[in-house]
């Protein structure tokens, strides 16, 4: 028999640094596959966030830059402007991108920086132990909203980031995908690859939001967590394209 699927060797030969059933491992794989398919591993600078996926640097055999919490889009801007022909992949979680780093992502998009952003939305702060994120759903429990998020208590509404960024003219491409099943994982890979190809063609900012499970901090089994992504998260965060070729879809 012929080998038809093997590990991507951009990852070091080790288990992923994440909890069992964590979506980061799947999404890392899709990023690695996309980078490999376009033959850019040697030319990639992976911009890690602060949050669980800061640990990407322990796992990925890529040049990695790890800036301060939320500032990754600003640092990515610096990298890309200094090395315009490199492939800059921005990887951020929801706390990093949609809370502390809101200004940085909005303005990096608005300048139309020619970079590719992968935004992992798992509706929780994972690294710090399960606090409420800007994207935590209404009613969803976290250590800092133990009764479930309640906007009426001043805890705010879950932010739909693709919709928020959609109106910015600097945004060339935006799509929201999910990793709740294999079909959607493959769609995620396709979206990331498109984002990377856009960058290589110097088209501007590409933004891929990926809905992802965090079984440990959600207090669910990995399988239940996938169901939660599909039934609850995707209901509030609709999947699909938001911007293609610079035009609102």
């Amino acid at each position: 028999m012929k080998k038809v699927y093997e590990r991507n060797n951009i990852a070091l030969d080790m288990p992923s640094p994440y909890c069992p059933g964590c979506g980061h491992g799947i999404i890392h794989r899709m990023v690695m596959d996309a980078i490999k398919e376009v033959g850019q591993a040697d030319n990639t600078i992976f911009m890690a966030p602060v949050g669980c996926s800061i640990l990407a640097y322990t796992y990925l055999d890529l040049d990695v830059c790890q800036p301060a919490h939320g500032r990754t889009p600003a640092a990515a801007t610096g990298v890309k402007r200094a090395l315009p022909d490199s492939l800059v992949v921005l990887y951020q979680g929801d706390g990093d991108l949609a809370a502390i780093g809101t200004a940085e992502i909005v303005h990096a998009v608005n300048r139309g920086e020619n970079i590719t952003a992968v935004f992992v939305n798992n509706a929780i702060y994972g690294m710090t132990g399960g606090q409420m994120a800007p994207t935590t759903l209404e009613g969803q429990r976290a250590t800092t909203c133990p009764e479930g998020r309640n906007p009426m208590l001043g805890q705010g509404y879950p932010i739909r980031v693709c919709e928020l960024l959609q109106s910015l003219r600097g945004l060339y491409y935006a799509e929201r995908t999910s990793v709740h099943d294999a079909k959607n994982v493959l769609k995620t890979r396709k979206a990331i690859k498109k984002g990377i190809e856009n960058q290589m063609a110097k088209k501007g900012f590409s933004f891929i939001e990926v809905l992802s499970p965090c079984p440990v901090n959600w207090g669910m089994t990995p399988r239940k967590a996938l169901e939660y992504v599909e039934k609850e998260m995707a209901a509030y965060y609709p999947l699909g394209e938001f911007k293609v070729d610079g035009k609102i879809v």
Partner: peptide
């Protein structure tokens, strides 16, 4: 059947798939 979908879903790159 060697469809590869299990490997696609694996967060830890633990699965290689072979097919005839």
């Amino acid at each position: 059947t060697g469809c590869t979908l299990c490997a696609v879903m694996c967060p830890d790159q633990a699965i290689d798939v072979y097919r005839e």
